[in-house]
Design a binder for these strands. Structure first.
Length: 506
DNA sequence: CGCTCGGGCTATAGAGCCCGAGCGGTGCCCTATT
């Protein structure tokens, strides 16, 4: 046991580090900026929990989801670490005030990027010594920051405001391109990169091609009777998640559904039941997964096309965290491409819209110096997500300042530049999708394709790899345990059983 | 882009077809408090 391990034992109670942890922690303790790409289940939490005990000042951990923060804080508490707190919308005003007041006694603060935009909170944090700035699930910066959650792109400013403390970015999946993006958007200087392979040897990958959607679904149900649970089935739409889970129940596979349109309570309930092995299958949109800390997921099925290889790897990575053999299968038919393409399209305003909003719409007010920025949104009824993105870029260019849209700064050249910028972003996303489609349709080894996308080479031997290399070996066939189908009970019958037991007994 | 849904038409009294409109995913935070 060396010095660092002794400290680990004293402070946390662990005897040794897992692969990669030591190097990452060492770099953090040397006060370097660090990017760590470490596979799911690799013990990311320790990489900031342990340093937070050793360095002066508080450690701020930026986290993308409320449930993730809750989970982290609870887990730390469960292991006896009471020095972690969180600030988010789940707290009442009084609670938030109290937490902010007592921050000096804490070593870790979990917070959302949006909350870090709050002036009062920034002011309070600025008055504290900040020892380490951590961004958990840092691929969100690249995946969400530029369009969907632009507060991710403001983290650089926040970090500078806090006196540029050393920064640690953690993620399980980052291509070299995403890694660059993270470094730039966090304003890191000469960061140390710790990159571990994204390969998950215990996950076999399978792609099933069908002629059309109907055939795809038939293939899916045929396949379903051969897989092990627990399993996640990803669908493109909320409606599909619901429909498929109903159909699965009729076929005797007990399944629930999950998507972002459900109430918070329902989502928590379903997730809880799945975590506790009360439901073997869950049909979900991509709302489900991040932060779902379940070790024994055996199967991840895609009934749609994720929009990039990263996204796919993130989602299949939820299988087999216990290291046991698991399977990921993607069912594909050519129609599946249209929806992700549409989603990419929908994120950005068209040239026509930009012209209408920023040139034609404002021509009326040319004599004024400025107008309220939100006038644009309200007048043209721009949807929330696109407005927030547009607003971010208008603020970045100084066209919106202190809630005011400055008339003299806007002209058609600017609008053309903005539109070219959006076009460029859109093209990039389309290329990511194209690359994935090529992988899905092609006859190259899937694992090799994925690894090369992440800048890795595939040099090792894998017993059973993917549907191209032939994972459906006899050995694997023998190992499978077919699942027990449940007797289908309609919700009407279930309700009757609960409310009128005497009826069902009769 | 491609599906689903609803309205309207036809041609006959209930149903079938066509066409256009609308929709499709991810999460923080919320008009403000200290």
């Amino acid at each position: 046991m060396d010095k660092l391990e002794r400290l680990l034992h004293d402070k946390i109670g662990f005897k040794s580090f897992r692969t990669g942890q030591r190097d990452i922690i060492q770099s953090v303790l040397e006060r370097k900026d660090v990017v760590a790409i470490i596979p799911t289940g690799g013990g990311k939490t320790l990489c900031y929990q342990f340093p937070s005990k050793l360095i002066d000042g508080i450690t701020i951990i930026v986290s993308p989801l409320l449930s993730l923060m809750e989970d982290q804080v609870h887990q730390l508490r469960a292991y006896g670490d009471k020095s972690a707190v969180q600030i988010n919308s789940l707290l009442s005003f009084e609670e938030r005030t109290r937490v902010l007041k007592e921050l000096t006694n804490q070593s870790m603060l979990f917070i959302s990027p949006e909350m870090l935009g709050n002036e009062y909170i920034k002011k309070r944090l600025k008055s504290l010594p900040v020892g380490l700035f951590v961004v958990d699930e840092a691929h969100c910066i690249s995946q969400w920051g530029h369009e969907f959650r632009t507060d991710y792109l403001r983290l650089k400013e926040v970090r500078a405001l806090l006196g540029s403390p050393p920064c640690l970015a953690l993620t399980a999946t980052a291509t070299p391109q995403v890694e660059k993006d993270i470094i730039m958007e966090l304003g890191m200087k000469n960061p140390t990169i710790h990159r571990f392979s994204v390969n998950r040897k215990n996950i076999r990958m399978n792609i099933n091609q069908a002629e059309n959607t109907k055939e795809k679904e038939e293939n899916f149900f045929e396949f379903l009777s051969t897989v092990e649970h627990p399993g996640i089935i990803y669908t493109a739409t909320r409606n599909d998640a619901l429909r498929l889970s109903e159909k699965m129940n009729v076929m005797g596979f007990n399944a629930a559904f999950y998507h972002g349109g459900m109430t918070k309570e329902d989502r928590i309930l379903v997730q809880y039941q799945f975590l506790n092995n009360e439901i073997p299958f869950i049909c979900a949109t991509n709302a489900f997964g991040m932060g779902v800390n379940k070790q024994n997921i055996r199967t991840v099925i895609h009934m749609h096309l994720p929009s990039s290889i990263e996204q796919y790897v993130q989602e299949i990575g939820r299988a087999g965290r216990d290291g046991m053999e698991s399977i990921a299968t993607l069912f594909f038919s050519k129609e599946d491409q249209t929806l992700p393409r549409r989603f990419i399209e929908m994120e950005y305003p068209t040239d026509k819209e930009l012209q209408l909003w920023l040139i034609d719409g404002l021509s009326f007010y040319r004599k004024e110096d400025s107008i309220q920025a939100n006038w644009l949104k309200d007048f043209f009824q721009i949807d929330d997500v696109r407005w927030r993105m547009l607003r971010y870029y208008l603020e970045k260019s100084g066209i919106i300042h202190a809630d005011l849209l400055l008339m003299n700064k806007i002209n058609s050249q600017y609008v053309n530049r903005l539109s070219a910028f959006f076009m460029n972003r859109k093209n990039k996303k389309e290329l990511c999708l194209d690359r994935f489609v090529k992988l899905v349709k092609g006859n190259q080894c899937i694992r090799q394709g994925i690894l090369s996308y992440f800048g890795e080479s595939y040099t090792f031997e894998q017993e059973a790899c993917c549907s191209v290399c032939g994972y459906l070996e006899e050995k694997w066939e023998k190992k499978k345990k077919p699942i027990q189908r449940m007797e289908y009970i309609s919700w009407q019958e279930q309700l009757q059983k609960m409310l009128l037991p005497q009826w069902t007994e009769r």
